[in-house]
């Protein structure tokens, strides 16, 4: 079977500075992979480059998604192929009403124009489980949202789009204990429905909920270790020092 995602010797730079220095990573087995690593090691850069961000330049290497080389595809194409990025810092879009936006996503995904009442009922179910205020639907997208509210809206979109691959960049950061539980529930739900997840995180806590099949450690632009779930625990106990990869 072809791996869902295959990253081969990927180099990427921003403003002439190389951030990714030859990433190799394959998601072949298992539903959930985790990526860990120090602040500034290049995790968000990797996530953004995978989604085709215009801010980074890929200078070498390849990204294969579902066996197809997508290194030169634009972001829309990647998304429509079934890739999703949950942002570490979701951007604010003033005046873009959450409800209309979600409705557009739903229409794009299903090709159907769902009745407003039906759609509201559908959203209301997910939102109450995620413990989101209903008035969020009437607000501007991420406009004035708290950190936790933004992360929950990312999870709501994840559940709505049900992508084949969800790259989640610290979707668990900045959450209180209750929010962490609801967000984890949401991600689990997506996994149960068939999404594969590449989650970037600093904490083992979310991994307790998601039980990753593999953990990769990214240090200084390279994957320096890939192993079973125990690796996450070891990092939690001992930090990154033992892996070398000097800053």
């Amino acid at each position: 079977m072809k791996p869902l995602l295959e990253i081969k010797d990927l180099h990427a730079q921003v403003e002439g500075q190389e951030i990714l220095k030859g990433i190799n990573l394959a998601m072949d087995d298992g539903q959930v992979h985790a990526v860990m690593g120090r602040n500034g090691s290049g995790k968000s850069t990797l996530a953004n480059v995978l989604m085709g961000s215009p801010f980074y330049e890929v200078t070498q290497g390849q990204v294969l998604f579902k066996g197809r080389d997508i290194t030169n595809e634009d972001t829309t194409t990647r998304a429509r192929m079934g890739m999703f990025l949950g942002f570490q810092y979701p951007v604010e879009l003033a005046g873009v009403r959450v409800y209309e936006f979600l409705k557009t996503l739903h229409r794009n995904k299903t090709g159907e124009d769902i009745k407003p009442a039906e759609f509201r009922a559908y959203l209301s179910d997910i939102m109450s489980t995620l413990d989101m205020e209903p008035d969020v639907l009437g607000r501007g997208l991420n406009e004035g949202f708290s950190g936790g509210e933004k992360k929950k809206l990312e999870v709501l979109q994840l559940l709505l789009l049900q992508p084949e691959l969800a790259i989640l960049d610290e979707t668990d950061s900045g959450l209180d204990v209750d929010a962490l539980r609801t967000v984890s529930w949401g991600i689990r739900k997506a996994v149960e429905r068939g999404s594969k997840v590449l989650i970037i995180t600093h904490y083992t806590r979310i991994l307790d909920y998601l039980s990753p099949d593999r953990v990769h450690v990214l240090l200084n632009g390279r994957i320096v270790a890939s192993d079973g779930p125990d690796l996450a625990q070891k990092i939690d106990d001992q930090g990154y020092e033992w892996l070398g990869g000097a800053q």
Binding site: M51, G52, F55, T75, T76, R78, R80, L105
Partner: peptide, 8 residues
């Protein structure tokens, strides 16, 4: 980029 990552 955000909007396009959602398929727009």
């Amino acid at each position: 980029f955000y909007l396009m990552s959602r398929g727009l």
